[in-house]
Amino acid sequence: MPRITREDKARNRQNIIDAAGRMFRAQGIDAVGIADLMKEAGLTHGGFYNHFASKDELAAEACGASFEASLGVLDQAVEEGPGPTGTPLQRVVNGYLSAAHRDAPDGGCPSASLVIDAGRHSDTVQGAYAVGVEGYLTGFASELARDHDEELTPQEARERAVLLLSRLVGAMTLARAVRHTEPELSDEILRTCRAHAFD
Rank of each mutant, 00 (worst) to 15 (best):
A118Q: 09
S98D: 05
E143S: 14
G119I: 10
C63S: 15
C63Q: 04
A77H: 14
E80Q: 15
D106V: 02
L71I: 01
P88F: 00
S111A: 15
D199K: 06
Y49W: 05
A112Q: 09
A157C: 06
D56E: 10
V78N: 10
R13G: 10
P2N: 09
A195F: 01
T173F: 09
V92W: 12
R102K: 06
V169I: 12
A59Y: 04
E134M: 08
Y96F: 15
S186M: 13
V115F: 02
S70G: 09
Y136H: 15
D18C: 01
A60N: 08
G86W: 06
G86P: 12
G170P: 03
H180K: 13
G139H: 01
L168S: 12
G108V: 03
T44L: 13
S54A: 11
S54K: 05
A161N: 13
L89V: 01
G139C: 02
L185H: 06
H148N: 14
I16R: 04
L190F: 04
G83Y: 10
Q90E: 15
A118S: 08
H101I: 04
C109I: 02
M172K: 05
V73R: 13
I16G: 12
A171T: 15
A100C: 00
V125M: 02
D30P: 02
D75M: 00
H121D: 02
V32T: 13
E61H: 14
Y96C: 08
K9W: 14
L97V: 11
G42P: 12
A171G: 10
A41H: 06
I17N: 11
L152E: 03
D18K: 07
A141I: 09
G139V: 00
K9H: 15
A100P: 02
L190G: 00
R91F: 07
S111V: 11
P2H: 08
H51M: 06
F24R: 05
G83S: 10
G33H: 15
H51T: 00
A62N: 07
C109W: 05
G83T: 06
R158Q: 15
A100G: 03
E159M: 11
P110L: 11
G72S: 01
M172Q: 08
F52R: 01
F140L: 13
I34A: 08
P82E: 12
A130P: 05
D18T: 12
S111R: 00
T124V: 12
A35V: 11
T87F: 12
P105H: 11
S186L: 12
D199E: 11
D8K: 15
G28I: 04
